[in-house]
């Protein structure tokens, strides 16, 4: 699975038809390819260079096998080369086995912390096929159905503003409501004079001090 030294560095974007995976020719006949068949539509292509599988025109997989990990630093050069030459999102799948476990933390540090890529461990090619299948499925889903994406804030600002004003010492619900009805916004409340504040909530030296005080 290693790249020949003179191999052209192709890691560019290619068009991947919907629901398909484009695999590097070198994977033809492998256990991973066999297990992917029937779950995703797998097409082999020559000359993918550093990339093992293209999942979309933005995402691709680089596969680091147990043998790669044991063999030494060649895979690191390959990852760095990919990172320096490609604008694609790279997902690095690493075989984490009893033998390669000792290298895992260092690889994770390189891939995630240094190179800023995604790393996902698997135990073998069988697990990798299942993971790739799920990644492809996730790609074809409606992005809005992703449960981990932030949803627009639904709470009305009124409730929050009301809470914020109650953080001022000596201001409870009643005074907070009076102050907000009079001044309309936190910005205007913060710019109120002592006199204006007194007209609303009586003796309020504390409130004024809280908003205007500098203790530098």
């Amino acid at each position: 699975m290693t790249t020949k030294p003179n191999f052209p560095v192709t890691a560019g974007s290619i068009a991947v038809p919907y629901g398909h995976v484009i695999g590097n020719e070198k994977w033809r006949g492998s256990e991973l390819a066999q297990k992917l068949q029937g779950k995703v539509r797998l097409i082999f292509e020559d000359g993918l260079g550093l990339v093992d599988f293209h999942l979309s025109n933005r995402t691709c997989i680089l596969y680091i096998s147990e043998a790669d990990l044991v063999a030494g630093d060649e895979f690191k050069r390959r990852l760095v080369k990919f990172r320096n030459t490609s604008s694609l999102g790279g997902v690095v799948i690493v075989e984490k086995t009893q033998i390669s476990d000792q290298y895992f933390l260092a690889v994770q540090k390189l891939v995630v912390l240094e190179l800023g890529m995604v790393l996902l461990p698997v135990a073998n090619q069988g697990e990798a096929s299942q993971l790739i299948t799920q990644l492809v499925r996730e790609h074809s889903k409606d992005p809005n159905s992703n449960p981990f994406l932030p949803k627009p804030c639904s709470q009305l600002a009124e409730a929050s503003v009301f809470q914020t004003v109650q953080q001022i010492p000596g201001v409870g619900k009643t005074k907070a409501l009076l102050l907000l009805q009079q001044f309309g916004s936190i910005h205007r409340l913060c710019n109120a004079s002592v006199k204006e504040l007194e007209l609303v909530v009586g003796q309020t030296g504390l409130v004024y001090q809280y908003m205007a005080a500098c203790d530098v």
Partner: peptide, 23 residues
Amino acid sequence: YLHHGFDAQLLPKSLCATGTGPA
């Protein structure tokens, strides 16, 4: 948020039900 114009009508009733609550 700081410039949000507060509208008391939109404040959930459960929040402002105070009456005699201590300041």
